[in-house]
Amino acid sequence: MNNKPKVGLFVTCLVDLYRPNVGFAAIALLEKSGCEVVVPETQTCCGQPAFNNGDRASTIKIAKQTIEAFSGFDYIVAPSGSCAGMLKHHYPELLMDQTQWSDRASEFATRVFELTCFLVDIMSIDLSQTRFDSSVTYHDSCSGLRELNIKAQPRQLLGNIDGVSLNEMEDTEVCCGFGGTFCVKFPEISERMVSDKVALVEQSGADVLTGGDLGCLLNISGRLNRMASPIRVYHVAEILAGMIDEPAIGEPTSTNTQP
């Protein structure tokens, strides 16, 4: 019991608000891979809304708070490439000039992983008991792809699940138009980008769209829904954990059960 790696789950604000199921799926997967998982209560958000809108001072405060909250864990794992990239790459950059923090941020960064990378590159997980009978297409979220090289890991994990067939869409590495606050600041441009993405998702012929970042998935699912598309959207952690009893993202609740 004691030699289990101790993982602090960085929930991410969107999972916290919109899709708790992803957080529980992440816990299930991490525990299954042999980790002990704790969710520190003093976490909020990784700080990207402030960072990407130029509020450096607030971002630095949030960065320090997050580093504090996750001291004492062997690993910090997030079900998001974008937030993990923020913790891993941008925190050290932001705190570079602060003597008492720069080493700490760099050391912290070495312990940060995105969920699917962690499950493939650090741990190993047996998904042979999981089943998901669907054709799936995977959207590569930009930050995860380009800051953390997430590409093969989620596909490898999906490939280990019985019943999944992967239908790659064209231009899977092209941005969906979410971009955090971009999508509300430039709604018309964002609409064009998400429309292009949705067209490619539909061309792929898959029944399910999945990905590793809830922001992108909310964006694409919102557009699919508006276009009355039957394609269902799940975070990749939900599929990998077999936790797909919940309505897909943007679907109505069919029963009154509490998650």
């Binding site: 708790p20 600041k185 709604p187 018309e188 964002s190 609409e191 998400v194 508006r226």
Partner: peptide, 12 residues
């Protein structure tokens, strides 16, 4: 800005 072109998924 969001809802002009897409629906906003409701929280789970």
């Amino acid at each position: 800005g969001w809802t002009r072109s897409r629906d906003l998924p409701a929280p789970q």
